[in-house]
Amino acid sequence: MADVEPDLEGYCGVISARRGDDVLGEWAIGLADRTAGAPNTPETRFGLASGTKTFTALTVLSLVGDGLLRLETPAREILGADLPLIADDVTIGHLLSHTSGIGDYLDEEVDALAPLSVPVQQLDSTPAYLPMLDGFPTKFPAGERFSYCNGGYVVLAIIAERVAGTPFADLVRTRVFEPAGMDASGFPRSDLLPPGTATGYKDDGRTNVFELPVVGSGDGGAHSTVSDLHRFWGALLAGRIVDPSLVALLTERVTPDADDGLGYGRGVWLDDDDLMIVGADHGVVAVSRHHPPTATTVTGLANAEVPTFGRVSELMGAIQSDGVVPAE
């Protein structure tokens, strides 16, 4: 690994490469808090933005495993009179795979960084998102094609809360974070971040506190560390979070080419053998790429809008070509 290092120019965050129990390399760059002058470290918590969707999908699949939901369950069956523009044929499976065709409150095919339609401080629980999700007509019939849908994952969080009778953040904690040993992960309030959490910064130097919901839900807002994300992949593939049959559903290539040659399963991006968590938003970039045959994880977490996906991909490629021996 001596000659295998990421491009760190202009980066602000942490990049980590691990294989099994071995840390192959970790690089912490820039400040977690510019006012206090606190540096980023390998232990710093970062926002994951849409990387949260992987945990949402697993939470929902765990409810499938418990018999509380099925992939074929119509969303309308749980939503009742709420969100009436969601078509009757939209199912849990469609929402998980971004093939529901429902209208999106934040349509990335139009503007991935559009301002929210309600004050962010009002978004302090999953039910509080309902007014923001309402009023968007169907884009296309369910199952017709892939179209990345942020709102669909908030709908999944609403459904999960209702069938389990438990707040969404608590569901993710008990069904994903705790089984995976992810002790540093959670859904903190953006105006009450715990110590050791990076503040997200926009390109103009301001923080992202007025851009993102005060408490995240199914499509974003979870925070984690590079260590926790490596633990996550190991726990997932060892069957410690959900049954292997449900892991297979998560990682099944539902859409072979969702974007730039990447496939998509149900909450996970797929690039050949690599499984990926990917997220980006105002002042947040998160990419965790795991290669199951060698138990290698490369994660880049940033608290500024800096190129991260390419850095992580290139570092993984360099590690694999550097003679990494597959884990037994």
Rank of each mutant, 00 (worst) to 15 (best):
A57I: 03
T59P: 04
V60W: 07
V60T: 13
L61S: 10
L61H: 11
S62F: 10
L63P: 00
G65L: 10
D66Q: 15
L68T: 06
L69P: 00
R70N: 14
E72I: 02
P74L: 02
A75I: 00
R76Y: 01
A81I: 05
L83Y: 02
L83W: 06
P84Q: 11
P84C: 09
P84A: 14
L85F: 03
I86M: 08
T91D: 05
I92S: 00
G93M: 00
G93D: 02
H94V: 12
L95E: 01
L96D: 01
S97I: 05
S97D: 00
H98W: 07
H98V: 04
T99Q: 13
S100P: 03
G101K: 02
G101M: 04
I102D: 01
I102H: 01
I102W: 00
G103T: 07
D104W: 04
D104M: 13
L106I: 05
E108Y: 08
V110G: 01
V110Q: 12
D111W: 09
A112T: 14
A112W: 12
A112V: 09
A112Q: 14
A114F: 05
A114N: 04
P115R: 10
L116I: 07
P119F: 07
Q121V: 14
Q122S: 11
Q122I: 01
Q122E: 15
Q122T: 13
L123R: 00
D124Q: 12
S125G: 10
T126F: 02
A128R: 03
Y129Q: 08
Y129R: 11
P131F: 08
P131L: 10
M132D: 04
M132L: 15
D134W: 02
G135Y: 08
F136N: 08
P141R: 07
G143I: 09
Y148W: 12
G151D: 05
G152M: 03
Y153M: 04
Y153A: 11
Y153W: 10
Y153Q: 12
V154I: 14
V155E: 05
V155Y: 08
V155L: 09
I158G: 00
I158Q: 14
I159N: 09
I159E: 08
A160L: 11
E161K: 07
R162G: 03
P167L: 01
P167R: 13
P167D: 14
D170S: 04
L171T: 02
V172P: 12
T174W: 06
T174G: 07
F177C: 08
E178K: 08
E178A: 14
P179N: 09
G181C: 08
M182W: 08
M182Q: 06
A184N: 13
S185V: 02
F187D: 01
F187A: 05
D191L: 11
L192K: 10
L193R: 09
P194M: 12
P195A: 12
P195C: 06
P195I: 06
G196A: 04
T197I: 10
A198D: 03
A198T: 07
A198H: 09
A198K: 09
